[in-house]
Design a protein around this nucleic acid. Structure first.
Lengths: 335, 335
DNA sequence: TTGAAAGCGCTAACAT
DNA sequence: ATGTTAGCGCTTTCAA
């Protein structure tokens, strides 16, 4: 192991004949330092190859300028873009982010939060696993700044940012109804998910307005393309066996929709004439896919950016945010 | 701003009547502490809600257990999976990662590295922008453990991990040649990229073996679906105007391939009969896409995992790694 | 405008 | 098995 020792302000102090505090002031730009002194210090720092030790600095200032970002899976295209939004905005504002995946596992979420607390992050942005929420309740109780992304957690008063899922569901269903579809299948996510419940609510609202003219069938499945594919296969054959002829499918997200489309293709069902398909999220690939997917679009990067802003605002003046971002139905070729 | 003060080992020491060092030992599990003493300390720590301050600890130990991960764009599905591999493996080994995007900008890369040095990360995993490399040369000179991912940098002796691009190119070209294709277009990335050069090399090797029976045409473009789409449009019309009838296209990556397929579809060209298309990377969506893409596949998560392992090994015993991961041609419906 | 002293929370080194 | 001392590199008093 090569011996590494970083240059410290003490070294600069010795080299310049000044005190450490003057050096500190010059380098951090706080307090009075004569112009020539500052320049001299800066020059020596440069020569010596000085790099500030932010751990030492944090220890004193109680600020790390690090944010914890907890997501379910950073390789999921949805979160990938959200994380990107957070990262860009954080960097622009002098913050760094520590990224942790939970893989939808509550234990992992608990560990992630603990680790981030040990690192004394200035705040956390969390997409909650939602299966349990006591860890987040406790976090809030500790007064650690945080924003919960993509869900609202019952009984927990903190910062929230999410998309207008109910409106998204409503828009998707309304669109299909206007197209004359009568038998809609909602291929939804599990009930413990806030977004799944809200989307369902919006869809039901639109369907209810038809006064029984349109019927809604609901199946649920857990995340992942393979899961969705297998689930849909059995759901669809169930429906067929019951003699129910679905003519439109609203999917919990675009990934589910891809799975649905794949199976529909295998069955030789024509999209959208026989069955129309709507997704949620508008992943980058959804417009490239053949056929391009009709989907409820949200600005994922913006979600990240706004989450960051809300967190910083909370850190600075303790205000609580409840931000809901608008959604938009993007009609392409599957409806 | 709510007054937050974390519990320290000093608090525990007072509460327990023991010295801070004993508390430290009990908590960190180093050195001898009587069983009952340890239990007592652990209990009090629990009661008081103690969370270790890793910044303070790092200051002393000179180890942060943080790794810097510098990628071009974490929302690019390729890097998204790589980052995931790193994150999982890091977490498993008690490390955290600070993620930074460079957006293929050299200045950003310089800033990212500087920031990470200030944070005293134990090491860095970097996908280099490659347009300039002096920043990385300097990093290496400072003896900061690092591994460069996806490229080899001329004149810089450090840890490298990358995929067998030359072999990938060779396999892709050989496959097309065996299919009887005669006029191959290589729709490549820019020349400053190591992977682009290596893939080209492999392709040329395969083409050369046909003794002039097969001809190769090369166009290059910068990253991004839109760029690729526009570039390909003009490249393809150029070729047509010259009376060159391409019957196979090897794309620098899957994204380029999607752009190519999109335009080919617009033109009504039949894939793969009229023109076959091969991509690189095997993004998750490439198998879902219609038609499913033939592509050179690499295990991206593994790339991340191996990068992490190489870095840790370098940190621990200073050995240099040069890891090349195998690639595989996955034939689907575009060839 | 500059400096001295003290301390952030932890642990290494050396006692006892 | 437990404690003392000192110090990591920085910044916050308080003084000059």
């Amino acid at each position: 192991m090569t011996k590494r020792r970083f240059v410290t302000i003490k070294d600069i102090a010795q080299q310049s004949g000044l005190s450490v505090i003057t050096v500190s002031r010059a380098l951090s730009g706080t307090g009075y330092v004569r112009k020539e002194t500052r320049e001299k210090i800066l020059r020596i720092a440069e020569e010596l190859g000085y790099t500030k030790d932010s751990a030492a600095s944090s220890l004193r200032t109680k600020k790390t300028k690090i944010l914890g970002v907890v997501v379910v899976d950073n390789s999921n295209p949805f979160y990938a873009e959200v994380v990107k939004g957070i990262e860009i905005e954080a960097r622009k504002n002098g913050y760094s982010i520590i990224l942790v995946n939970t893989d939808r596992n509550y234990e992992n979420e608990v560990n992630a939060i603990n680790m981030l607390l040990q690192r004394r992050v200035d705040g956390l942005i969390i997409t909650a696993v939602q299966k349990r929420t006591d860890d987040i309740a406790e976090l809030v109780k500790k007064h650690i700044p945080n924003v919960i992304m993509g869900s609202k957690l019952k009984g927990i008063k903190t910062n929230y940012i999410y998309t207008d899922d109910e409106d998204g569901g409503y828009k998707a269903a309304k669109h299909l109804i206007e197209l004359g579809k009568k038998n809609i299948l909602l291929f939804n996510g599990m009930k413990y998910k806030y977004a799944a419940r809200m989307r369902e609510k919006g869809i039901k609202k639109a369907v209810a307005r038809t006064n029984g003219d349109v019927s809604l069938h609901i199946y649920r499945t857990i995340e992942g393309f393979e899961n969705a594919y297998q689930s849909f296969k059995s759901a669809f054959s169930n429906l067929s066996n019951q003699g129910i002829a679905i003519d439109a499918i609203i999917c919990y997200n675009d990934i589910y929709a891809y799975a649905v489309i794949k199976h529909l293709n295998e069955l030789g069902v024509h999209i959208p004439d026989e069955i129309a398909v709507v997704g949620f999220d508008d992943l980058p690939f959804s417009s490239i896919l053949n056929p391009p997917l009709t989907t409820v679009s949200v600005d994922k990067t913006r979600l990240g950016i706004e989450a960051f802003k809300a967190l910083i605002k909370n850190i600075e003046d303790n205000t609580l945010a409840d931000i809901v971002l608008p959604v938009e139905l993007v009609r392409r070729k599957t409806t």
